[in-house]
């Protein structure tokens, strides 16, 4: 039979016979993954570091300029604002989903089973499965001068509040940020709801016996019990906030002014439209380090008491 044949073939072709040194076998097993990782991640990382020391337009000759590009990144007002914008997005990508998620989770403890739970999960996950570009397009339309937001404001008699949200200096960044909230809320909420259902129900019973109010319950049982889930939400969403690209690209392309410009999009524009490959690479390296610098303490803090 075929099974027999294949087995025989595999055995013949396999370099890993019983006696093979485990160490060498391990390296052979790792080699393919490491090849792709090396060729398309590690090598570009090294190239990025190298480019970041050049003044190069991507076409002509390059000249070595040392750390000049990094000095530009940390002193140029526009670039600093762009980096600050990414941090401001954390409020909408991370803080809001976690707070709303916590609120909902502590109210509906154990309500997510059955058909209602399935429908809820499905609906709240739709923003997670569509491309971020699509989220950007959908929301550009919501925020449009003719869009639903202004329509609703007009409907309840607040015409004075209507505006072109994505072109407004005060509201463009929050508006872009709330697209992120919309995308990430479902994920955070369900993580927290799942987490809370794992907390021993007797803890809540005991607290009730002691006459604890809802806040005490939340503060002393729910919050500590969800430490790890919160850590996960925070980590995942911070990475999304700092490295955002797709949503901004379609919704505002960074405008008005540079109110919603983020490092990811600026790298793209510097490298390919403005042809400052060196500066783009330096910003890329800085972005990579910033993400690590923020995420590592979060991980450490939320896993500490495990």
């Amino acid at each position: 039979m075929t099974v027999y044949k294949t087995e025989k073939k595999v055995q013949r072709l396999s370099p890993f016979r019983g006696g093979l040194n485990a160490n060498r076998a391990a390296w052979l097993f790792i080699a393919p993954a490491f090849f792709f990782y090396g060729a398309f991640v590690l090598l570009p990382m090294a190239m990025s570091a190298y480019y970041s020391l050049l003044n190069w337009d991507g076409i002509g000759a390059a000249s070595f300029v040392g750390l000049t590009n990094y000095i530009t990144v940390v002193t140029d007002d526009d670039l600093l604002q762009i980096i600050a914008n990414a941090f401001r997005l954390i409020l909408y990508f991370t803080v809001l989903p976690v707070i709303v998620g916590l609120a909902v989770a502590s109210v509906i403890r154990n309500q997510m089973s059955g058909r209602f739970g399935t429908v809820t999960r499905t609906v709240l996950f739709i923003p997670q499965v569509i491309p971020l570009v699509a989220a950007g397009i959908v929301w550009s339309w919501m925020y449009d001068s003719n869009g639903v937001i202004n329509q609703l404001l007009g409907f309840i008699g607040l015409e004075n509040w209507t505006r072109g949200w994505l072109g407004d200096f005060t509201y463009a960044l929050p508006a872009v940020g709330l697209i992120g909230t919309w995308v990430l809320l479902g994920l955070c909420m369900l993580l927290l709801v799942t987490g809370i259902s794992r907390i021993d129900a007797s803890l809540y019973e005991a607290a009730k016996m002691d006459g604890a109010n809802a806040w005490h319950e939340f503060r002393h049982i729910t919050l500590p019990g969800l430490r790890q889930e919160i850590g996960v939400c925070v980590t995942v969403t911070i990475i999304q906030a700092l490295s955002s690209f797709d949503i901004v690209y379609v919704a505002t392309s960074g405008g008005p002014g540079i109110e919603t410009m983020v490092p990811g999009l600026e790298i793209y524009r510097l490298a390919f439209a403005h042809r400052e490959v060196g500066l783009a690479s330096a910003l890329g390296v800085v972005l990579m380090l910033l993400v690590l610098l923020i995420v590592i303490p979060v991980q450490w803090f939320t896993r500490e008491k495990q």
Binding site: Y143, S145, R163, G164, D168, P256
Partner: peptide, 9 residues
Amino acid sequence: YFSRDVNSV
């Protein structure tokens, strides 16, 4: 003279 939302037009 320009529309109020000209930055999003």
